[in-house]
Computed example of a mutant assay.
Amino acid sequence: MTDALHLLSLGKGGWGGALLLAAGVTFALSVLGFLLGALFGAVAASGRLSTRAVPSWLAKGYGTVFRGVPDLLTIYLLYYGGSIALTEIGKFFGSAGFVGLPTFATGVLAIGIISGAYQAEVYRGAYLAVDLGQFEASKALGLSRFQLLRLVIVPQLMRHALPGLGNVWQLVLKDSALISVIGLVELMRQSQIGAGSMREPFVFYLAAAALYFLIAAVTGSVFRYGEARAWRGMVHA
């Protein structure tokens, strides 16, 4: 027990600082990926809701592919495909050797693309849950399309979307551990390094699990608070 506490301490010879820093990388990676996914999801949801064939077909294809392909494969394809493309561009301009994509940026993009496919369905379902009477009342008031979205639709859409977005966030947090396969030193990778260096896998992986749980618990409470505020003063099933 004493040895384990020393290994996880913040002092000299302890790995606590490195694990906390890696947890910060995991959190930043997850937040940025989730926000990028919100952008992709909003665009895809509007495509799914479109009456035009091409946007609807493209949005359906995006969701089907990235919800169906394993997340790890998506990460590999983005990193190695992008790195090969950069290497070829570098060769064209006279550079020699392999040019790899920045691992953090690749991780954010991969998580954004993957989570966007799930967020699109959340936003689409939330939009369909908005009472049609709200649209009719907005037209009767003479609101412009922008005013309709900003003042009426988006606030009500987010009210319905928050529970689903909380679930997607938990998936994003867990998917962030997969980014370690391309070399990013986030929480999972740092715990692997510590476990291998000190030959104490149980200690480091248990510490990583505790940090993941802490992040999930705190952020989950934020989503629950947001949901409670959104439904404040209203009756819902």
Results as ranks from 00 to 15, higher is better:
residue 3 D to P: 03
residue 5 L to Q: 08
residue 9 S to M: 01
residue 11 G to A: 12
residue 11 G to I: 04
residue 12 K to E: 12
residue 13 G to A: 05
residue 15 W to D: 03
residue 18 A to P: 05
residue 22 A to Y: 08
residue 27 F to Q: 04
residue 30 S to N: 06
residue 35 L to T: 05
residue 38 A to N: 04
residue 46 S to N: 10
residue 48 R to Y: 03
residue 48 R to V: 04
residue 48 R to A: 09
residue 50 S to Q: 06
residue 53 A to P: 09
residue 60 K to V: 09
residue 65 V to Q: 06
residue 65 V to R: 00
residue 68 G to D: 12
residue 72 L to A: 15
residue 73 L to G: 01
residue 75 I to L: 13
residue 75 I to P: 01
residue 80 Y to G: 11
residue 91 K to L: 09
residue 99 V to D: 12
residue 100 G to Y: 14
residue 101 L to R: 13
residue 103 T to C: 10
residue 108 V to Y: 06
residue 111 I to Y: 00
residue 118 Y to N: 02
residue 119 Q to W: 10
residue 122 V to K: 04
residue 126 A to R: 01
residue 126 A to T: 04
residue 136 E to I: 02
residue 137 A to L: 11
residue 137 A to F: 13
residue 138 S to A: 15
residue 141 L to S: 05
residue 145 R to K: 15
residue 152 V to Q: 08
residue 154 V to P: 04
residue 156 Q to I: 06
residue 156 Q to G: 05
residue 168 V to A: 04
residue 169 W to F: 15
residue 169 W to K: 13
residue 171 L to E: 13
residue 171 L to S: 14
residue 175 D to S: 15
residue 180 S to A: 15
residue 181 V to D: 02
residue 184 L to S: 01
residue 190 Q to V: 03
residue 191 S to W: 00
residue 191 S to E: 11
residue 195 A to I: 07
residue 203 V to F: 01
residue 206 L to F: 08
residue 211 L to R: 10
residue 214 L to R: 05
residue 230 A to M: 09
residue 231 W to A: 08
residue 235 V to C: 03
residue 235 V to I: 10
